[in-house]
Amino acid sequence: MSRPEIRVSGLHKSFGSNEVLRGIDLEIGQGEVVCVIGPSGSGKSTLLRCVNLLEEPTRGQVFVGGTELTDPDVDIDAARRRIGMVFQQFNLFPHLTVTENLTLPQRRVLRRSKAEAAKAAAENLRRVGLAEKADAYPSSLSGGQQQRVAIARALAMGPAVMLFDEPTSALDPELVGDVLAVMRMLADEGMTMMVVTHEMTFAREVADRVVFMDGGVIVEDGAPEQVIGAPRHERTRHFLSRLLDPAMADVEEETSDQVGGSE
């Protein structure tokens, strides 16, 4: 691993009395693709949102590209320019066309000229295969197209790191592939990526590392073949069996802290 692009140490996050993250340590190297998996409520999205400080950590440190984001005096807007974020619900700006979605942030945040911004916009729309939708409004696009525009919007800012928060969870199943293809392309180009996902095939084939989270801690962290293929922990096995073969799952008692099942 080269120098860590993302470093998280001793991270805690509570919402009121609910402790969602209970001490996370994680390093992601330059060009590494890390998939974070885990049951809902395990804190994986919160962890991702802490990496660009959309959520303020209660305790602990977050470094991205050598800058400490948790430093109270950091210029967070400058730091975020290096970090692209893709949301589950796309969050395109509905009052702007596709091209304007890409150019407005470049012009307002990076102070690029109109021509420069338009050039970067066109180039990135071509990368995600949506050059012909340049003048459309987001509402006229399918979910998969909107998500690809959202990826292009983040890329147009020239980020060093990309964060994906369940990028395919809101999509119809037949549209998932287009988005994953774009993400695979980015991974092949050497982008540093942290992906919260339920797409096990993607994790297995594209990720360099898979991190399994449960109950606000990292349970298992390793190569995909190991974490998905031969999980060491009972909790990981239990989660994967339910995810890969949901029709075979048993009815379970609800417990406050789920520690594995019996299968």
């Binding site: 975020r80 974020m85 949301f87 619900q89 969050n91 395109l92 942030p105 307002r108 945040v109 800012m157």
Partner: peptide, 18 residues
């Protein structure tokens, strides 16, 4: 306006005012 709009803008590097 949905909360995600502000989050998307902030994550692109917009200041709160902008």
């Amino acid at each position: 306006v949905p909360k995600g709009q502000m989050e998307a803008a902030r994550s692109l590097g917009f200041s709160p005012a902008r």
